[in-house]
Computed example of a mutant assay.
Amino acid sequence: METIRLEFQPNIKAKILELLSSFSSDELKIVPERSTFEDEKRMLQSRIDKINDGTAQFVSFEELDQFLEETISKYED
């Protein structure tokens, strides 16, 4: 199967669903989009912008490893 994303005005939703309901479930499956898609898109764009404008903060692998070891040791006992 293939997947497409449709954007439409709310007033034509009934017409679109009526058309799509003429197909069998073997031919077409309506998959609701996650409600957080737009939020995730904005968050990722914000991170890309920070990388591009040089304000993103990075850590080395060693710094990450040390942070994770410290965090794990707090909860081991």
Results as ranks from 00 to 15, higher is better:
75 Y>A: 00
71 T>W: 01
17 L>N: 11
48 I>C: 06
2 E>C: 03
61 F>V: 09
54 G>I: 07
73 S>C: 03
43 M>T: 06
52 N>W: 14
41 K>N: 04
67 F>V: 07
17 L>P: 01
10 P>W: 03
68 L>F: 10
45 Q>T: 07
6 L>S: 02
21 S>M: 10
22 S>I: 12
72 I>W: 11
68 L>Q: 02
37 F>E: 02
23 F>V: 09
70 E>A: 15
43 M>K: 00
12 I>R: 07
2 E>N: 15
6 L>I: 06
2 E>I: 05
62 E>V: 13
41 K>M: 01
34 R>I: 02
55 T>H: 13
6 L>G: 01
26 D>C: 11
35 S>G: 12
15 K>L: 14
42 R>S: 04
18 E>A: 11
5 R>S: 05
43 M>Y: 00
12 I>L: 03
59 V>G: 05
62 E>F: 06
63 E>F: 14
27 E>N: 11
32 P>Q: 06
63 E>V: 11
20 L>M: 15
75 Y>V: 08
77 D>N: 02
42 R>K: 02
60 S>T: 15
13 K>A: 10
12 I>Y: 09
69 E>L: 11
29 K>H: 15
59 V>E: 14
18 E>T: 08
77 D>R: 08
31 V>G: 03
67 F>R: 09
69 E>H: 14
69 E>A: 03
44 L>I: 10
58 F>C: 02
12 I>C: 14
56 A>W: 12
41 K>A: 00
31 V>H: 04
38 E>W: 04
15 K>G: 02
22 S>P: 00
58 F>Y: 15
14 A>M: 05
56 A>Q: 06
68 L>Y: 04
68 L>R: 09
25 S>Q: 12
28 L>Y: 09
17 L>Y: 14
34 R>G: 07
33 E>V: 13
48 I>S: 04
24 S>M: 06
23 F>W: 14
2 E>T: 08
69 E>V: 11
69 E>I: 12
47 R>G: 14
41 K>C: 00
14 A>L: 08
52 N>D: 06
65 D>V: 04
35 S>K: 14
53 D>W: 10
62 E>Y: 09
53 D>H: 06
12 I>V: 11
68 L>P: 01
35 S>Y: 03
28 L>A: 08
56 A>P: 00
18 E>M: 04
34 R>K: 02
62 E>C: 07
66 Q>F: 10
50 K>F: 09
37 F>M: 08
54 G>E: 01
46 S>E: 05
62 E>A: 12
54 G>N: 03
34 R>Y: 02
8 F>K: 07
65 D>I: 04
76 E>V: 12
1 M>R: 15
68 L>T: 09
25 S>A: 15
31 V>K: 13
66 Q>Y: 09
34 R>H: 10
23 F>Q: 14
72 I>T: 07
2 E>A: 15
75 Y>F: 12
64 L>C: 09
15 K>V: 13
37 F>D: 05
61 F>M: 07
19 L>R: 03
23 F>N: 03
10 P>A: 12
11 N>W: 12
25 S>R: 13
50 K>P: 00
40 E>H: 09
19 L>M: 07
47 R>F: 01
28 L>C: 03
10 P>S: 15
46 S>F: 13
76 E>Q: 12
68 L>H: 08
